[in-house]
């Protein structure tokens, strides 16, 4: 298969659909989503979803309940195969890839309804994310060879380093399922991060967190972007978080993008206020 490389054409295209035309304009986009859509039976859950994300931007995807936000993430991670459209990761067409391949290509995610390996320890959850970075054969595993020892020791240290991002190294050996809700969400972010992604998708990372946890999380997300130099796309209903850290925002309503732009533009967009922000205040 010939992968389309990002040439002049795509770059202009990128400027046209980008959430942030100025920022990263010189760099090639890491994620180009083109006309992505999916139907469930008669229901069009997502339609003509087109955005482009730069390699180190933090972007937000917002919209009312049932707008199709999580479905977009499921499309980007190939939990669902799209009915229409495709997306390019680092210039590579992802058509035909499955969930595993898309992660290996560089997209990692968290889940709205947390999906940790509950019965395993916190450290092991992170180590599972590190799996492809731990190198020893099945023989090494069965006989615990020196290779095994060395690689496991490195993985252990790397896991603790990652846990340090959220000050969680102290309960590396706690059962993941026994953690408080907020800590479970943070652990899921670390597990995704462990796979060394280019794009990190966070589905409602602040859900269930109290205001102080949320503000810590905002700081951490920015820190993660700065340290790992990755693109972060997040779904969130907490407007303080979204407006506080997202550089670009796309608004989804009934599966359709109704607005794209900077937080200021979004906040003053009458369509968005009508469909989402206004209604939110009444509630």
């Amino acid at each position: 298969m010939i992968f389309p490389t990002v040439g002049v054409n795509t770059l202009t295209d990128y400027k046209g659909h980008s959430l942030l035309p100025e920022r990263d304009a010189e760099q090639r986009p890491v994620l180009e989503i083109q006309g992505l859509g999916i139907d469930f039976g008669g229901l069009t859950a997502v339609n003509d979803f087109t955005i482009t994300l730069g390699p180190t931007e933090i972007s937000g995807l917002i919209g009312p309940n049932g707008a199709g936000k999580t479905t977009v993430f499921n499309l980007l991670t190939k939990v669902y195969q799209p009915t229409r459209g495709t997306f390019y990761l680092d210039g590579k067409d992802t058509a035909g890839m499955n969930t595993v391949q898309v992660n290996q290509a560089g997209i990692a995610r968290t889940f709205q309804n947390i999906r940790l390996f509950d019965k395993m320890t916190v450290e092991e959850n992170v180590k599972i994310g590190l799996h492809r970075d731990i190198h020893y054969s099945l023989g090494g595993a069965l006989f615990h060879t020196p290779f095994y020892r060395k690689a496991e020791k490195r993985a252990h240290e790397r896991a603790l380093e990652l846990l340090d991002i959220f000050d969680m190294a102290d309960f590396a050996y706690a059962q993941a399922g026994s953690l408080p809700y907020g800590a479970q969400r943070r652990l899921e972010i670390l597990r995704a991060l462990a796979t060394d992604p280019k794009v990190l998708l966070l589905d409602e990372p602040a859900a269930g967190m109290n205001p102080s946890e949320t503000s810590d999380l905002m700081e951490a997300i920015t820190k993660i972007r700065d340290t790992f130099k990755i693109c972060i796309l997040l779904i969130e209903h907490d407007m303080n978080l979204v407006m506080g850290i997202c550089e670009g925002i796309a608004v989804l309503n009934f599966g359709q993008i109704i607005a794209k732009g900077t937080p200021q533009e979004i906040q003053s967009n009458p369509q968005v206020i009508e469909a989402y922000l206004g209604r939110k205040k009444e509630a």
Binding site: V100, N103, K119, R132, R191
Partner: peptide
């Protein structure tokens, strides 16, 4: 064990 506990999550980490 990851595959046993949560297949979708396991696939999501490759």
């Amino acid at each position: 064990m990851a595959m046993r506990d949560n297949r979708i999550a396991a696939e999501s980490v490759g």
